[in-house]
Design a protein around this nucleic acid. Structure first.
Lengths: 245, 245
DNA sequence: GTAGTTCGATTGTCCGGACATACGCATTGA
DNA sequence: TCAATGCGTATGTCCGGACAATCGAACTAC
């Protein structure tokens, strides 16, 4: 069966976006089977009453997502593999919620402290100047899963403990109008210290998964510096990444 | 000082690519300072004798890389933060070499084995069918750094031990004409088993950083399944990621 | 039978233009 | 003084067309 595509020119949604969404839905649904050709752009454009650049823009966005592959002289094919999450900058909270785990958060510290040298360097503020410090214990199914320490520059966000327990830090930032842009991450492992072990209900020296992250907004400001420890039996970093070409 | 940009129309290199490379170089060099406006597209196009779509294509590619930010009604600005590696699918070998560590590889196993259930599922082959198995010890400065176990489907590549010791697996694949497309990764941690501990010169139960990865080519075939363990004192995963918008 | 050639198909690149939309700022009004 | 309005500017979207580059397959010649 042919795919029935259509665009609504009266909609404020861009035409290329309407098209790319329909194509993506068709791929997701299985109407467009992996490996199948998409049909050439010219004819597709004519069929929809669109110009070729518009159709190309729609297709290109799906190529960037890794769903399609174009080959000159051949055509555009649906990629065969199962593409899922292309590693977006997501919060642990969102990850857990997406996995249907109904995460719980216990805010243990929410205060203002002088910046340590490490924090000051990461956030780009003066050493000893005031920064927010938040420590949270993230639980799933009543069991501790991760211990999250975050530092934020002052005046960026008023951190309400109740809100922090109800949702993730990134959501609060986005809601406050902060446009997240990029983050530098470092993932490692180490043995748990006595304090860490107690917080996560592990034994001292037990292997922990660690992640340090500095997040920047689109003006280049550091908006968050996180130092997280995860129980490896409960959590691992899963993601899909694409080859930049 | 104004930026001196120019394009060579006789070159086979696409014009938009020439432009984006020059802009990227100028950002890298510091000629285009963070936060500075890039000047509007129309005028830039006129100055270079290019059309606006071509200039837009060049700028867009840098936006996708996270180097620029566009704001409607405002202009295009250079991002202020230090963007480095947007997490490409790279081999450990390339990573180490880029860090100037002159990695050494010792191939311990290079043979054909029947596929275990886990390997068969990852590679999409029948359980018990022949697959290549490679075990390598990666060293830096004479010290073991990671233990790499890889399985490959048969007939894809003839794995020469000498070549494996001289370069990375991904390079061999690319050289064999395989177009890498995407990979699913899982990063975790666990205590070292007795065998792992001995291989990496650690003690039993010492925390190890682990990574499992299945790599796909652009036809969706699984071309590699890797099960790696790293010494966390010697290695951690460092990368930068962008917010998909 | 095999190697080289030609040719159709399809995407890649590029152009010049048009109108829409959103942001920042100055002006205007209460 | 402060909020609402209007305007200039820049990017966002879209069009229709042209030619080049590349791939695969059919065809041809040896």
């Amino acid at each position: 069966m042919q795919l029935d595509l259509s665009v609504d020119r009266s909609s404020p949604v861009p035409l290329y976006f309407q098209l790319s969404q329909q194509l993506e839905a068709a791929i997701e649904r299985g109407t467009l089977t992996p490996g199948s050709l998409l049909g050439n752009e010219i004819e597709l454009a004519a069929r929809l009453g669109l110009s070729r650049p518009t159709v190309r823009q729609a297709i290109q966005s799906l190529v960037d997502k890794g769903l399609l592959v174009r080959r000159r002289g051949v055509g555009t094919q649906v990629v065969h593999s199962q593409v899922k999450r292309p590693l977006e900058l997501s919060s642990l909270y969102d990850d857990l919620e997406a996995a249907g785990q109904r995460p719980a958060t216990r805010v243990l510290v929410n205060t203002v402290v002088p910046a340590s040298p490490e924090v000051a360097a990461a956030l780009g503020v003066a050493e000893g100047s005031d920064v927010h410090r938040v420590e949270r214990l993230r639980l799933a199914h009543g069991e501790p899963m991760a211990y999250l320490i975050n530092h934020l520059p002052p005046g960026l966000l008023d951190l309400d403990t109740a809100q922090l327990e109800a949702t993730g830090l990134y959501r609060l930032m986005r809601a406050a109008g902060i446009t997240l842009h990029s983050a530098r991450q470092s993932i490692g492992a180490r043995g748990a210290t006595a304090a860490e072990a107690e917080r996560l209900m592990e034994e001292q020296g037990a292997p922990l998964l660690t992640m340090q992250r500095t997040t920047f907004d689109d003006t280049g400001r550091a908006v968050e510096f996180g130092d997280h420890t995860y129980r490896p039996s409960r959590y691992s970093f899963e993601f899909q990444l694409l080859v930049r070409s």
